[in-house]
Design a protein around this nucleic acid. Structure first.
Lengths: 139, 139
DNA sequence: TCCTTTATTGTACTAATTGTATCATTGTAT
DNA sequence: ATACAATGATACAATTAGTACAATAAAGGA
Protein backbone atom coordinates (compact mmCIF):
# COMPACT_ATOMS: atom_id res chain seq x y z
CA UNK A 1 0.00 0.00 0.00
CA UNK A 2 2.13 2.85 1.23
CA UNK A 3 5.17 0.76 0.48
CA UNK A 4 5.02 1.36 -3.23
CA UNK A 5 7.80 2.98 -5.13
CA UNK A 6 7.79 6.57 -4.11
CA UNK A 7 9.51 9.07 -6.37
CA UNK A 8 11.93 11.39 -4.65
CA UNK A 9 10.98 15.00 -4.65
CA UNK A 10 13.72 17.55 -4.95
CA UNK A 11 13.55 21.20 -4.16
CA UNK A 12 16.14 22.97 -6.24
CA UNK A 13 15.73 26.25 -4.40
CA UNK A 14 15.80 24.99 -0.88
CA UNK A 15 19.46 25.68 -0.44
CA UNK A 16 20.00 22.08 0.59
CA UNK A 17 22.39 20.28 -1.73
CA UNK A 18 20.70 17.82 -3.98
CA UNK A 19 22.78 14.94 -2.75
CA UNK A 20 21.74 15.77 0.79
CA UNK A 21 18.11 15.74 -0.19
CA UNK A 22 18.54 12.37 -1.82
CA UNK A 23 20.30 10.98 1.23
CA UNK A 24 17.66 12.24 3.60
CA UNK A 25 14.72 11.08 1.56
CA UNK A 26 16.09 7.60 1.19
CA UNK A 27 16.77 7.46 4.89
CA UNK A 28 13.28 8.64 5.56
CA UNK A 29 11.73 6.11 3.20
CA UNK A 30 13.69 3.38 4.92
CA UNK A 31 12.56 4.62 8.30
CA UNK A 32 8.95 4.60 7.13
CA UNK A 33 9.10 1.17 5.62
CA UNK A 34 8.66 2.42 2.08
CA UNK A 35 12.06 0.94 1.46
CA UNK A 36 12.98 -2.32 3.09
CA UNK A 37 16.20 -4.24 3.62
CA UNK A 38 17.19 -6.03 0.46
CA UNK A 39 15.34 -3.63 -1.81
CA UNK A 40 17.21 -2.56 -4.88
CA UNK A 41 17.51 1.16 -5.41
CA UNK A 42 17.38 2.68 -8.88
CA UNK A 43 20.72 2.78 -10.64
CA UNK A 44 22.62 6.00 -10.34
CA UNK A 45 21.84 6.77 -13.95
CA UNK A 46 18.17 5.89 -13.77
CA UNK A 47 17.56 7.94 -10.66
CA UNK A 48 19.60 10.77 -12.10
CA UNK A 49 17.49 10.84 -15.21
CA UNK A 50 14.30 10.72 -13.22
CA UNK A 51 15.45 13.62 -11.08
CA UNK A 52 16.98 15.53 -14.01
CA UNK A 53 20.30 15.56 -12.30
CA UNK A 54 23.79 14.38 -13.09
CA UNK A 55 24.36 10.79 -12.14
CA UNK A 56 27.43 11.73 -10.17
CA UNK A 57 25.21 13.62 -7.80
CA UNK A 58 23.21 10.48 -7.20
CA UNK A 59 26.43 8.53 -6.90
CA UNK A 60 27.56 10.93 -4.25
CA UNK A 61 24.40 10.42 -2.27
CA UNK A 62 24.73 6.68 -2.64
CA UNK A 63 28.32 6.83 -1.47
CA UNK A 64 27.31 8.67 1.67
CA UNK A 65 24.59 6.13 2.36
CA UNK A 66 27.05 3.35 1.67
CA UNK A 67 29.56 4.75 4.13
CA UNK A 68 26.76 4.97 6.66
CA UNK A 69 26.13 1.24 6.04
CA UNK A 70 22.60 1.98 5.00
CA UNK A 71 22.98 0.74 1.48
CA UNK A 72 25.41 -1.54 -0.27
CA UNK A 73 26.61 -0.44 -3.68
CA UNK A 74 28.14 -3.01 -5.97
CA UNK A 75 29.90 -2.03 -9.12
CA UNK A 76 28.39 -3.75 -12.11
CA UNK A 77 25.35 -4.93 -10.20
CA UNK A 78 23.45 -2.21 -8.46
CA UNK A 79 22.74 -0.79 -5.04
CA UNK A 80 20.66 -2.38 -2.33
CA UNK A 81 19.34 -1.51 1.06
CA UNK A 82 21.55 -3.23 3.60
CA UNK A 83 20.01 -6.42 4.87
CA UNK A 84 20.55 -5.51 8.46
CA UNK A 85 20.48 -1.76 8.80
CA UNK A 86 22.84 -0.20 11.31
CA UNK A 87 20.86 -0.40 14.48
CA UNK A 88 21.07 2.91 16.17
CA UNK A 89 17.69 1.53 17.02
CA UNK A 90 16.58 -0.47 20.00
CA UNK A 91 18.75 -2.95 21.79
CA UNK A 92 16.20 -5.59 21.01
CA UNK A 93 16.43 -5.05 17.28
CA UNK A 94 20.15 -4.90 17.56
CA UNK A 95 20.25 -8.25 19.19
CA UNK A 96 17.87 -9.74 16.68
CA UNK A 97 20.06 -8.50 13.88
CA UNK A 98 23.11 -10.25 15.19
CA UNK A 99 21.09 -13.36 15.88
CA UNK A 100 19.86 -13.44 12.32
CA UNK A 101 23.33 -12.91 10.95
CA UNK A 102 24.76 -15.61 13.15
CA UNK A 103 21.99 -18.00 12.31
CA UNK A 104 22.68 -17.61 8.61
CA UNK A 105 26.38 -18.20 9.15
CA UNK A 106 25.92 -21.32 11.22
CA UNK A 107 23.22 -22.69 9.01
CA UNK A 108 25.42 -22.25 5.97
CA UNK A 109 28.36 -23.87 7.73
CA UNK A 110 26.34 -26.93 8.63
CA UNK A 111 24.82 -27.08 5.20
CA UNK A 112 28.31 -27.28 3.78
CA UNK A 113 29.19 -30.11 6.11
CA UNK A 114 31.21 -28.50 8.84
CA UNK A 115 30.79 -29.66 12.40
CA UNK A 116 29.80 -27.66 15.45
CA UNK A 117 33.29 -28.16 16.79
CA UNK A 118 34.94 -26.85 13.69
CA UNK A 119 32.68 -23.85 13.51
CA UNK A 120 33.23 -22.75 17.06
CA UNK A 121 36.96 -23.31 16.80
CA UNK A 122 37.16 -21.30 13.61
CA UNK A 123 35.19 -18.47 15.13
CA UNK A 124 37.56 -18.37 18.07
CA UNK A 125 40.62 -18.37 15.84
CA UNK A 126 39.20 -15.78 13.56
CA UNK A 127 38.23 -13.43 16.36
CA UNK A 128 41.66 -13.88 17.88
CA UNK A 129 43.54 -13.02 14.71
CA UNK A 130 41.24 -10.11 14.21
CA UNK A 131 42.09 -8.72 17.58
CA UNK A 132 45.77 -9.20 16.95
CA UNK A 133 45.54 -7.36 13.67
CA UNK A 134 43.70 -4.56 15.37
CA UNK A 135 46.25 -4.39 18.18
CA UNK A 136 49.12 -4.09 15.77
CA UNK A 137 47.26 -1.28 14.04
CA UNK A 138 46.99 0.58 17.30
CA UNK A 139 50.70 0.61 17.88
CA UNK B 1 23.82 -39.45 3.46
CA UNK B 2 24.70 -35.82 3.66
CA UNK B 3 26.61 -36.24 0.45
CA UNK B 4 23.58 -35.85 -1.74
CA UNK B 5 23.41 -33.26 -4.42
CA UNK B 6 23.20 -29.96 -2.67
CA UNK B 7 21.83 -27.01 -4.61
CA UNK B 8 23.97 -23.93 -4.57
CA UNK B 9 22.53 -20.99 -2.74
CA UNK B 10 23.23 -17.57 -4.07
CA UNK B 11 22.80 -14.29 -2.30
CA UNK B 12 22.31 -11.70 -4.96
CA UNK B 13 22.91 -8.73 -2.74
CA UNK B 14 25.70 -10.00 -0.57
CA UNK B 15 28.24 -7.91 -2.38
CA UNK B 16 30.09 -11.01 -3.49
CA UNK B 17 30.07 -11.57 -7.23
CA UNK B 18 27.95 -14.50 -8.26
CA UNK B 19 30.87 -16.29 -9.89
CA UNK B 20 32.78 -16.03 -6.63
CA UNK B 21 29.91 -17.52 -4.69
CA UNK B 22 29.74 -20.41 -7.10
CA UNK B 23 33.48 -21.01 -6.83
CA UNK B 24 33.46 -20.97 -3.06
CA UNK B 25 30.47 -23.20 -2.65
CA UNK B 26 31.81 -25.82 -5.01
CA UNK B 27 35.10 -25.74 -3.15
CA UNK B 28 33.28 -26.19 0.13
CA UNK B 29 31.19 -29.02 -1.16
CA UNK B 30 34.27 -30.76 -2.43
CA UNK B 31 36.09 -30.17 0.82
CA UNK B 32 33.22 -31.73 2.72
CA UNK B 33 32.67 -34.71 0.49
CA UNK B 34 29.37 -33.50 -0.86
CA UNK B 35 31.18 -33.54 -4.15
CA UNK B 36 33.74 -36.24 -4.83
CA UNK B 37 36.54 -36.69 -7.34
CA UNK B 38 35.14 -37.84 -10.63
CA UNK B 39 31.73 -36.34 -10.03
CA UNK B 40 30.25 -34.53 -12.94
CA UNK B 41 29.12 -31.02 -12.30
CA UNK B 42 26.04 -29.64 -13.94
CA UNK B 43 26.65 -28.19 -17.37
CA UNK B 44 27.18 -24.48 -17.49
CA UNK B 45 23.78 -24.05 -19.02
CA UNK B 46 21.95 -26.33 -16.61
CA UNK B 47 23.45 -24.74 -13.54
CA UNK B 48 22.85 -21.31 -14.99
CA UNK B 49 19.20 -22.07 -15.48
CA UNK B 50 18.88 -23.49 -12.00
CA UNK B 51 20.47 -20.42 -10.48
CA UNK B 52 18.65 -18.01 -12.81
CA UNK B 53 21.92 -16.65 -14.05
CA UNK B 54 23.62 -16.27 -17.39
CA UNK B 55 25.61 -19.34 -18.34
CA UNK B 56 28.71 -17.27 -18.89
CA UNK B 57 28.70 -16.46 -15.22
CA UNK B 58 28.81 -20.15 -14.44
CA UNK B 59 31.44 -20.63 -17.12
CA UNK B 60 33.55 -18.00 -15.43
CA UNK B 61 33.33 -19.80 -12.11
CA UNK B 62 34.20 -23.09 -13.79
CA UNK B 63 37.16 -21.51 -15.50
CA UNK B 64 38.51 -20.29 -12.18
CA UNK B 65 38.09 -23.72 -10.62
CA UNK B 66 39.67 -25.27 -13.70
CA UNK B 67 42.70 -23.04 -13.42
CA UNK B 68 42.97 -24.07 -9.78
CA UNK B 69 42.99 -27.71 -10.93
CA UNK B 70 39.95 -28.41 -8.85
CA UNK B 71 37.77 -29.33 -11.77
CA UNK B 72 38.47 -30.39 -15.29
CA UNK B 73 36.32 -28.84 -17.97
CA UNK B 74 36.16 -30.56 -21.30
CA UNK B 75 34.54 -28.93 -24.23
CA UNK B 76 31.77 -31.05 -25.63
CA UNK B 77 31.82 -33.42 -22.66
CA UNK B 78 31.21 -31.65 -19.43
CA UNK B 79 33.03 -30.71 -16.28
CA UNK B 80 34.25 -33.08 -13.64
CA UNK B 81 35.85 -32.91 -10.26
CA UNK B 82 39.53 -33.65 -10.67
CA UNK B 83 40.35 -37.30 -10.04
CA UNK B 84 43.52 -36.83 -8.03
CA UNK B 85 42.47 -35.97 -4.51
CA UNK B 86 45.56 -34.47 -2.90
CA UNK B 87 44.74 -35.35 0.68
CA UNK B 88 46.55 -32.58 2.42
CA UNK B 89 45.19 -30.17 -0.14
CA UNK B 90 41.74 -31.42 0.58
CA UNK B 91 42.13 -30.78 4.27
CA UNK B 92 43.64 -27.43 3.53
CA UNK B 93 40.81 -26.55 1.23
CA UNK B 94 38.31 -27.58 3.81
CA UNK B 95 39.89 -25.35 6.36
CA UNK B 96 40.21 -22.45 4.00
CA UNK B 97 36.63 -22.60 2.96
CA UNK B 98 35.36 -22.50 6.51
CA UNK B 99 37.84 -19.75 7.25
CA UNK B 100 36.52 -17.69 4.37
CA UNK B 101 32.95 -18.20 5.50
CA UNK B 102 33.81 -17.27 9.06
CA UNK B 103 35.83 -14.30 8.00
CA UNK B 104 32.91 -12.89 6.09
CA UNK B 105 30.57 -13.41 9.00
CA UNK B 106 32.85 -11.73 11.50
CA UNK B 107 33.72 -8.95 9.15
CA UNK B 108 30.06 -8.23 8.58
CA UNK B 109 29.33 -8.33 12.28
CA UNK B 110 32.04 -5.82 13.07
CA UNK B 111 30.96 -3.70 10.17
CA UNK B 112 27.55 -3.48 11.76
CA UNK B 113 29.12 -2.36 14.98
CA UNK B 114 28.93 -5.46 17.11
CA UNK B 115 31.70 -6.19 19.55
CA UNK B 116 33.89 -9.24 19.69
CA UNK B 117 32.18 -10.17 22.92
CA UNK B 118 28.73 -9.96 21.45
CA UNK B 119 29.71 -12.00 18.45
CA UNK B 120 31.29 -14.83 20.34
CA UNK B 121 28.43 -14.94 22.80
CA UNK B 122 25.88 -15.07 20.02
CA UNK B 123 27.75 -17.85 18.27
CA UNK B 124 27.79 -19.87 21.48
CA UNK B 125 24.09 -19.35 22.04
CA UNK B 126 23.23 -20.14 18.50
CA UNK B 127 25.26 -23.33 18.41
CA UNK B 128 23.71 -24.37 21.69
CA UNK B 129 20.16 -23.92 20.54
CA UNK B 130 21.05 -25.72 17.38
CA UNK B 131 22.30 -28.70 19.27
CA UNK B 132 19.22 -28.74 21.45
CA UNK B 133 17.01 -28.73 18.39
CA UNK B 134 19.01 -31.58 16.96
CA UNK B 135 18.85 -33.55 20.22
CA UNK B 136 15.10 -33.27 20.37
CA UNK B 137 14.99 -34.52 16.80
CA UNK B 138 16.96 -37.57 17.79
CA UNK B 139 14.55 -38.61 20.47
C1' DT C 1 31.25 -50.50 -40.52
C1' DC C 2 31.59 -45.82 -41.84
C1' DC C 3 30.01 -41.49 -42.75
C1' DT C 4 26.82 -37.70 -41.92
C1' DT C 5 23.91 -35.24 -39.07
C1' DT C 6 22.37 -33.43 -34.86
C1' DA C 7 22.46 -32.34 -30.10
C1' DT C 8 25.16 -31.13 -26.27
C1' DT C 9 28.93 -29.07 -24.23
C1' DG C 10 32.45 -25.56 -23.21
C1' DT C 11 35.00 -21.24 -25.38
C1' DA C 12 35.81 -16.71 -27.16
C1' DC C 13 34.63 -12.36 -28.10
C1' DT C 14 31.67 -8.60 -27.63
C1' DA C 15 28.09 -5.71 -25.68
C1' DA C 16 25.35 -3.81 -22.03
C1' DT C 17 24.76 -2.33 -17.42
C1' DT C 18 26.44 -0.85 -13.32
C1' DG C 19 29.29 1.94 -9.99
C1' DT C 20 34.05 4.69 -9.46
C1' DA C 21 37.56 8.18 -9.98
C1' DT C 22 39.18 12.41 -11.53
C1' DC C 23 38.94 16.77 -13.10
C1' DA C 24 36.34 20.93 -14.90
C1' DT C 25 32.71 24.24 -14.24
C1' DT C 26 29.61 27.03 -11.68
C1' DG C 27 27.88 29.65 -8.04
C1' DT C 28 28.38 31.84 -3.66
C1' DA C 29 30.39 33.57 0.48
C1' DT C 30 34.31 35.87 2.44
C1' DA D 1 39.51 38.33 -6.07
C1' DT D 2 39.79 34.01 -3.74
C1' DA D 3 38.25 29.94 -1.77
C1' DC D 4 35.19 26.48 -1.29
C1' DA D 5 31.24 23.56 -2.08
C1' DA D 6 28.09 21.59 -5.39
C1' DT D 7 27.40 19.83 -9.68
C1' DG D 8 28.55 18.15 -14.21
C1' DA D 9 31.54 15.80 -17.89
C1' DT D 10 34.40 12.24 -19.14
C1' DA D 11 36.91 8.20 -18.90
C1' DC D 12 37.30 3.88 -16.48
C1' DA D 13 36.52 -0.73 -14.16
C1' DA D 14 33.69 -4.71 -12.65
C1' DT D 15 29.97 -7.75 -13.45
C1' DT D 16 26.84 -10.02 -16.17
C1' DA D 17 24.56 -11.02 -20.59
C1' DG D 18 24.36 -12.03 -25.79
C1' DT D 19 26.02 -14.31 -29.85
C1' DA D 20 28.64 -17.09 -32.60
C1' DC D 21 31.76 -20.90 -32.66
C1' DA D 22 34.34 -25.35 -31.85
C1' DA D 23 34.80 -29.95 -29.85
C1' DT D 24 32.67 -34.13 -28.55
C1' DA D 25 29.35 -37.70 -28.45
C1' DA D 26 25.36 -40.03 -29.97
C1' DA D 27 22.10 -41.33 -33.44
C1' DG D 28 20.81 -42.77 -38.14
C1' DG D 29 21.37 -44.30 -42.64
C1' DA D 30 24.20 -46.06 -46.67
Amino acid sequence: MTDKKQPLQLDFHSGLPIYTQIVEQIQSQLANGILKPGDQLPTVRALAQELRVNFNTVARAYRILDEARIISTQQGRGTYITEIPPPEVSEKLRNESLAALTHRFISESFRLGFSEREVSQMVRDSLKSWKEAKDSDDE
